[in-house]
Design a protein around this nucleic acid. Structure first.
Lengths: 223, 223, 223, 223
DNA sequence: TATGAATGAGTCTTCATTCAT
DNA sequence: GATGAATGAAGACTCATTCAT
């Protein structure tokens, strides 16, 4: 039996879904409330029973999106594996999610842009970002990642790289997204693992002395 | 003496500048043609003598922006230094440019989003991106960068990281952008240089022989 | 024990009271049925069980108002005093009622204005107006008021003056409403009494003596 | 030749006239901007070039009305006659103007009512009211009116009476407006003049002759 | 070329009223 | 009788674009 409450929730869900579709298809400004109502199979006024303004509706769509993304991300992470494997899994998830939801993502950016009218639900976005932060910091705790690396730096690199890659691989079929995730994780391993840097450091003074010597040699031979 | 042609060009410049200001301030959809005309000191109809539609005007603004950015980037690169130094210089430039022009950048994204109405001038953007590509590939030619790394992968990482960092550092004063560029380049060096970490061990005897050679060179040249 | 009928009447009363409040606060057009229902503590649909349309509800509110005003006015009149004292009492009542109910009054005017949508319940208004008419005509019957004065002329002056005064004294604290009522009644006395008061006083004993003399003359001639 | 400026002013005039008609016919809230544009023979947007909002347009209509009324009133006053004659002329003017413009007047009241949205142009209304004030105070200066009467009291009575009369005579053809103005002025004369001493003097011989007659009657009947 | 007044389609939002439960 | 979710027509205002001067 379908309760009254269930019917209402089902209607709200339909409206939210319709709004998502319309905003994704047309963008914020161009997405019309009338179209949303039509696709949701309700009258225009009905939409306003659930969301007081277009702005509110947009916000709800975004909230829902990021909440779902966070949920899916957590499900996609392999249990108990090491940090870099988990980061790679998360990277793969993020990339494919962005592929799938590119219009959504653009919507977020558009929302960020038209700041005077729409607001990104930062709290939900932060929840999602926190998935990365927790992985990364656990890596530090476990000694897998050097503790001197600020998490925010790695985080910006992680998300920035993947978002950019998502766009670029979308418009060019020759690019293999897997190459990008693999590269990202490889760099993380190369740069954030304990050993690498000292080696470079050790070589640095040697190189300087060599260069100085070569310069003098140049002087000698050219004279 | 001011020729007729110069007067026209000066007016077009004023319109473009006004358009840039207005779009940056209000965004694409909300930026009004009337406001642009007003700020340019011309009549509304006049704008249409130079740009047939709002879309065209937007496109021109973006074209001009990316062209200028490319020019500035090339000027900012240190002549004759090694690839990583140049990449670091470019990274710094890009980050500060995005800081300075964040609204512009958002405008681009907005343009990308509202795909049905506005289009990013891809050719100009590609010109800019090519600055990175050329640096990177010259690095490969010089043997400074492993040739197995696909340029596009590094490029997406480069721009993606920096764009994301630009946004995140903008909204949080505690973050030091320099840390992000340094990290990016360090990772590039760690991951894209020919020697893999394991190789370090193999390097030891080589280092010793080099040290000896340098010492002898020093003796020779200083005497 | 509360009968079913009493419960219904109580609900109707609550709706009417809520409607009154809402209309007074927001005016006719801006007063929303939903707000009325909310304040009455009933569902929106319920209001329509008692009043078929907003128009009907408005009418009912006005009917109730004028009926109450008439009742109060009659209570405010001093028993057995002379006409001018009673008129003054009524004037005072009317003025203070208009002060108290100015929003109501405006509502009436608004109703009168928006003639296409709302109608003033003329019958109830006439009942109220009749309070004046009866006082005035009884004054004529008693010889206190010259019979040549058309009642409607005095009536329009009475209500017109007081309504205007009510508004003007409301918005200016320096004005004393009592001055206005006193003035109105004084003018009535000055203009509607057969002779000016002082003259009447001088002539009074003379008239009495004449009447006494005539009475005796009657006795003589009839005998 | 018709200048550009003249054409614009002519258009503004047409819009104002159309707005006046529409507001008078339908009232504030119900008067639609689309209808005004249609009647003015312009596009909807054009109206907004001249008046930024509906509210502004309403205000302009009212301003114009009161300004015109003041002008007409001043023209209607007979030069150089005594105060009461002038007051009577003004009363006649006001009454007939209200007859003619009753819907306008209602509009004003409606505006006053819907105070949250529309505002009466008080300054223009005050200009009109000042016509009465000046007549009345000049009457005081000339010694025609007792100086103890507060002008505002007389003013409220004047306008209140006439407005009410205007409404009441409109809906009842049997009432003669002239009776109302005459009555108003008569009461003013009766109440605001310094007692007509001439009348008292004329009565004196009559009183004497009556006294004598009564005395003789007394003699006759008492004997 | 330049002007800027005019256009009118487009859109969000409101709210009296209905009706299935 | 009572509910309150749903309806959908209506209306103020915007703004890119045009065109007569």
């Amino acid at each position: 039996m379908v309760t009254k409450r269930q019917k209402l929730e089902e209607k709200e869900t339909r409206i939210l879904a319709a709004a998502r579709d319309v905003f994704v298809e047309f963008g914020f400004e161009k997405g019309r409330m009338a179209e949303i109502a039509k696709r949701a199979g309700v009258a225009e006024g009905t939409v306003y029973l659930y969301y007081q303004t277009k702005k509110d509706l947009v916000r709800a769509v975004l909230e829902q999106y990021w909440a779902r993304l966070t949920r899916e991300a957590l499900e996609a992470l392999p249990e108990g594996s090491n940090t870099f494997d988990q980061l790679q899994a998360f990277a793969r998830f993020h990339l494919s999610a962005f592929h799938r939801d590119i219009d959504y993502i653009n919507m977020n950016v558009a929302a960020r842009t038209a700041h005077q009218d729409f607001e990104v639900p930062m709290e939900r976005v932060r929840d999602y970002v926190r998935v990365f932060d927790q992985l990364f910091e656990r890596g530090k705790d476990r000694g897998e990642i050097r503790t001197t690396v600020p998490t925010w730096v790695a985080r910006d690199m992680f998300f920035g790289t993947l978002e950019h890659t998502a766009r670029s691989t979308l418009s060019d079929d020759n690019k293999d997204p897997e190459a990008a995730t693999a590269n990202l994780i490889a760099l993380f391993q190369a740069g954030y693992t304990d050993e690498a840097p000292e080696k470079t450091a050790e070589l640095a003074p040697l190189v300087q002395r060599l260069e100085a010597a070569v310069a003098r040699l140049d002087d000698l031979t050219s004279s």
